[in-house]
Every structure is written in structure tokens, then in C-alpha cells.
């Protein structure tokens, strides 16, 4: 099954015939539908696990109740009230979901600082190089760094544009080859641990 779909999709890339395109379109649609079904299933699993916690009055059940309330509210708002402007669905999104998400994202600023403080130690040449480049880039991209003259900004730009891009390309090429090998083994059924088979 894996192999059939795999090779069909691979060969399709080289077949311009409309039959190939129809097949391609269908399979893409199936993939979308399966993902969508999975999402709804995930929602159901999520609700079920919280329901169990609440009904069993297990530790933290009050939080589970909150989660269920938020879920129900959003579902009801979206499925009944619609998703256009001026609906409860979008109001909840704009005033609760989006700001909460932005805040969690902004926690990164703190974590990044803490990680830099503890992790950026010039233990050896590699770590020192990482540290220095990061500092140069940080200084080169702020007004204070620019006040020291064009050297820092230019160096920062060159580091980003030349050696960093080269390393990134090296990583990408390696990943590309590795992905192809994994994909091929999966298609041939050699590698099946993703479904628990012991190869």
C-alpha cells in the first residue's frame, strides 16, 4: 500500500498526461481529507481525555473543565455563529487566542536571553566562533553598532551572506540525500518502525 502510493506519486512527477494529473489531484485531496479527519479525531481525543479527568475528579480537574469550556465555546461560536467579521468566533480569536499566542511567542525573548547567558560559553574554538558571530550580528544590526562605523554592519552582512549560506547549503544537501534514502526505504517497506514493525 505504502509502496503503491509512493511510486505512483513519484512517477506522476514525470508524467504530464492528464490521467496522471487527475490521480495526483485526487491523492492530494485524500491526503487533505485524511489530515482533516485526523484533526477532528484529535479534537475528540482531547475532549475525551479532559472529560475523563473531570468526571474522575482527578488532580487538576478544574483546569480540564476550563479547557473543555474554552473548546465548547469556540466550537459553538464557529460552527453556529459563523467565522466572518463581527462574529463571536473572531472576537474570541482576536482578544484571547491571538494575544495569548503572541505572549507565548514573546516568552522566547526571555528564554533566548537565558539560553545565551548560560549556553554561550567560549569553551573551545567552535563555541567561541559561534559566540563571536552571534555578537557581531547582534551589534551590526542595531543603531549603536552602526555608530561605530561601517565595519561591523558590513562584517555582519558578509558573515550572513557568504559563510553562513555555504554551511546552510551543505546541511540542506545532506538532508536532501538523507530524506531521499529514508523515503525510498519506507516505500520499499525496508524501514517500518514508523508503524512499529521491527525491521
Amino acid at each position: 500500500m505504502v509502496g503503491v502510493f509512493g511510486f505512483a506519486m513519484l512517477i506522476q512527477y514525470f508524467v504530464p498526461h492528464p490521467l496522471g494529473r487527475v490521480l495526483y489531484g485526487r491523492v492530494l485531496e485524500w491526503m487533505q481529507v485524511i489530515f482533516a479527519a485526523g484533526l477532528v479525531l484529535g479534537g475528540a481525543t482531547y475532549a475525551m481525555s479532559h472529560l475523563r479527568t473531570v468526571s474522575g475528579r482527578r488532580e487538576g480537574w478544574i483546569y480540564s473543565l476550563l479547557a473543555l469550556a474554552a473548546l465548547t465555546l469556540m466550537l459553538a461560536a464557529g460552527l453556529i455563529g459563523g467565522i466572518d467579521r463581527g462574529t463571536l468566533f473572531l472576537w474570541l480569536f482576536n482578544n484571547l487566542q491571538a494575544p495569548l499566542q503572541q505572549t507565548v511567542f514573546s516568552l522566547l525573548a526571555f528564554f533566548v536571553a537565558s539560553a545565551a547567558y548560560r549556553g554561550f560559553r567560549a569553551r573551545n574554538i567552535d563555541a567561541a566562533l559561534l559566540l563571536i558571530v552571534a555578537l557581531v550580528v547582534m551589534l551590526g544590526r542595531i543603531p549603536i553598532g552602526e555608530m561605530t562605523g561601517p565595519f561591523l554592519p558590513d562584517l555582519a552582512r558578509w558573515l550572513v551572506d557568504v559563510p553562513a549560506v555555504a554551511a546552510k547549503r551543505g546541511i540542506l544537501i545532506g538532508i536532501g540525500l538523507g530524506s531521499v534514502a529514508v523515503a525510498l526505504r519506507v516505500m520499499l517497506g525496508i524501514e517500518r518502525a514508523w508503524l512499529g514493525g521491527r525491521r
Binding site: A113, A116, Y117, F120, A122, L135, M138, I142, P143, I144
Partner: peptide, 20 residues
């Protein structure tokens, strides 16, 4: 942005001094 970058840079330097 500038002051935060500087703060982090100073922190990194302090961290390294402490480490060494």
C-alpha cells in the same frame, strides 16, 4: 531593541567571565 541587545551582550560577557 538596542538596549536589549546590549543587555544580552553584557550578560553573555559576564557569563563568560564567570565561567573562566
Amino acid at each position: 531593541q538596542s538596549s536589549a541587545h546590549l543587555a544580552i551582550i553584557v550578560l553573555v560577557i559576564i557569563g563568560n567571565v564567570a565561567y573562566f
